[in-house]
Nucleic acid binder design. Structure first.
Lengths: 200, 200
DNA sequence: TTTGTATTCAACTATTTGGTTAAATTATTT
DNA sequence: AAATAATTTAACCAAATAGTTGAATACAAA
């Protein structure tokens, strides 16, 4: 019997394996098993490991980019922009645990191929948000910090607890439920903490 | 001629390779080349890849733990504790770029062996710092945030720009010099931003 | 010097892993 | 139904990689 969605099944399996194990840790056999197909099928649909990886990595970069620009540009006023971004971005990351560490890690390796894919797909600079910040800064409502320091801080505050989840769970002796609660509560904490830190 | 510090050379080479490439990305041959010795020497001094990895990973966890507790407990007063921690920790991380991502990544894989090594070596809970925070909170000088949220935030703010360095460099179109400047300037920014965010 | 021990290496083996192929099966078109 | 095209598989092959071995060399102690 011919399976209609073999390609989709492969993509889903590859996503699962690559995101957790990374390029060098991923095994073609594992991906085939996860997809419930024969290993040769992978090479039928995708010429080789590199090509399969490329499609997963590109897709991942696109996802991060989309949710980022989408959640950063939805509201007009700066406070609401921040509140909305923190909530939306945190939620997305929570549901896509492995996405940030996957991208960060592959980029760390410094391979030409990965860097090119990243550059090709990311195309994003938060120009509108920076304008908003600068305007508030010149009005005297926000501290005159470097906008990029601010952006890195906000993203980092959202991402880090998910990036470091396995480490922090052990450090704090939290089980899955407790850590989930920790992440949920973090949204309100961040909204208050960040705005307090930025306001003059 | 017998080389006196072969074991040390191996450790240094293994550190270099493992920290950047991770367990699965590291090649015994690369480590041997980096150390300037024969591949068989690795197995003479360390039985196998796992044993060599274990010693590097344990050492890394110990380093992180030491610098953490050391820079967190040096000062008495809360403001100075924070200012000192941010400066010391940031400086350490800047000089040990790959340490955080190495540990976080290997922990992400969820292997029994790595998790056990981590638990065995970390043994750290910032009890003194939490006491200090709670005292200030009850005095009304600090906002009544969950101490763990605070700690995760401070660490994340210091670590994230180094974790995500390759990504952020491309996003901001910064070269090595510019990014180095960004990290240097970040210390003062964080000291101000964090204290403002925490103070009532 | 001689003897024993630690160190080093080149060449080898075993295993893992990515990739190929040819044949069989299923679907689609004529 | 027959012919053609697409899909799937088992059984391979080739390359990469971890690990082994035995001989040679250097050093230290007797």
């Amino acid at each position: 019997m011919i399976e209609k969605n073999t390609e989709l099944k492969i993509i889903e399996a590859a996503r699962k394996v690559f995101l957790v194990r990374g390029y060098s840790g991923a095994r073609m056999q594992d991906i085939a098993d996860e997809a419930g197909i024969n290993k040769a099928m992978l090479h039928y649909y995708f010429r080789n490991k590199d090509k399969l990886f490329e499609s997963i990595f590109s897709e991942s970069v696109n996802n991060i980019r989309d949710i980022f620009s989408q959640s950063l540009n939805s509201e007009k006023e700066i406070d609401n922009t921040l509140i909305n971004f923190i909530a939306t971005y945190s939620e997305f990351i929570k549901n896509n645990r492995y996405l940030p560490s996957f991208i960060i890690n592959e980029m760390q390796q410094g391979s030409e191929m990965v860097e090119d894919l990243f550059k090709k797909n990311i195309k994003m600079y938060p120009i509108e948000f920076i304008k908003k910040l600068k305007k508030e800064q010149s009005l005297g409502t926000l501290e005159k910090y470097d906008p990029l320091q601010i952006i890195v801080s906000i993203i980092g505050l959202c991402l880090f607890p998910v990036l470091a989840q396995p480490v922090l769970k052990i450090l704090f002796d939290y089980d899955d439920n407790k850590y989930d609660k920790f992440l949920t509560e973090r949204v309100a904490f961040l909204q208050k903490f960040i705005i307090k830190g930025l306001k003059k």
